[in-house]
Amino acid sequence: MPRKIRLWYEDAQLHITSRGNHRNDIFRDESDFEVYLKGIEEAIDYYNGKFEILSYCLMTNHVHLQVQTTNIHIKDFIRRINGLYAMKFNDKYNYVGHLFQGRYGSEIIENDQYVVDASRYIHLNPVKANMVEKAEDYKWSSYSMIIGDIDEKLIISDKILNYFTVENKREAYKNYVQSDIQYGIKAKNKKTKKTQEVD
């Protein structure tokens, strides 16, 4: 049975996910994260800047990328990044078998609201996984760059920040991301209180 073709069109923006096979770790130490990021940078150079990274987060066993495309299919970009990384990983750890779980996942970002929503979702992954308390404490995401805590590298933050009309766009984005956590805490507390009342 032929594989289902990934939905894509020129100038599409996508939320890409790549997961470890059987949910196994694809990053075992800090140098692995660095190698993957260098692979993204190499792929951008290889395709002469035809792809832009808006936001990213590398988790232990999966990856999130928010990517702006032009006239080259996203599959070529992701295949290059994941293929080269898998070769280096397999060589380093003498790993046999598929590193990634099938093909990458992709979702087209079709409206303005989802541009910032997808970025927030990506950056809150480590927080919701209880790996850190604050998104800016996680080293392997673009969040600290977008809010201006560290120098920007690899990403182009303007595509996200320009959705905010206030003067301090980075602070506005930070408040936007934090609002999701605060809403989640309130919802959790409300649910807990309701449960206690029933008990």
Rank of each mutant, 00 (worst) to 15 (best):
I109V: 15
H62S: 02
Y121E: 06
A172C: 08
H15N: 04
I40W: 00
A12H: 13
I72E: 05
W140F: 15
R19F: 09
K4I: 11
D112F: 14
I40F: 01
M145W: 02
E42A: 09
P2A: 12
G83K: 05
R19E: 07
G83R: 10
F164A: 08
L161C: 05
V127E: 06
K88A: 13
R79E: 06
D180V: 13
N21D: 10
N48Y: 02
N162I: 01
V166T: 15
A129P: 10
I44V: 13
D76E: 14
E197K: 14
Y114M: 09
Y163P: 05
H22E: 15
S31H: 11
I181K: 06
I74R: 03
A172Y: 03
K194P: 02
D151R: 11
D11A: 12
F100Y: 12
D76K: 14
Y36Q: 02
E167A: 14
D45A: 14
E152V: 13
S141N: 10
K75E: 10
N24A: 04
H15D: 02
K159M: 00
V63D: 00
I81C: 01
I53H: 11
I53R: 10
N61E: 09
W140P: 04
G102V: 09
Y176K: 03
T17C: 04
Q68H: 09
H98F: 14
G20A: 02
A12R: 11
Y93L: 01
T60G: 11
M131S: 09
V198L: 15
I150M: 13
A43G: 04
E52I: 03
Y163Q: 12
N48H: 04
M145V: 07
S106P: 03
E110F: 03
E52F: 05
Y143R: 03
E107N: 14
R80V: 04
A86Q: 05
K92C: 10
I78S: 00
I156Q: 10
V63L: 03
G39A: 01
E136F: 08
Y104R: 07
Y56D: 00
V96C: 11
D180G: 14
R6H: 12
L7Q: 10
T165V: 15
Y121L: 05
E42S: 08
V116L: 15
F164I: 09
S144Y: 06
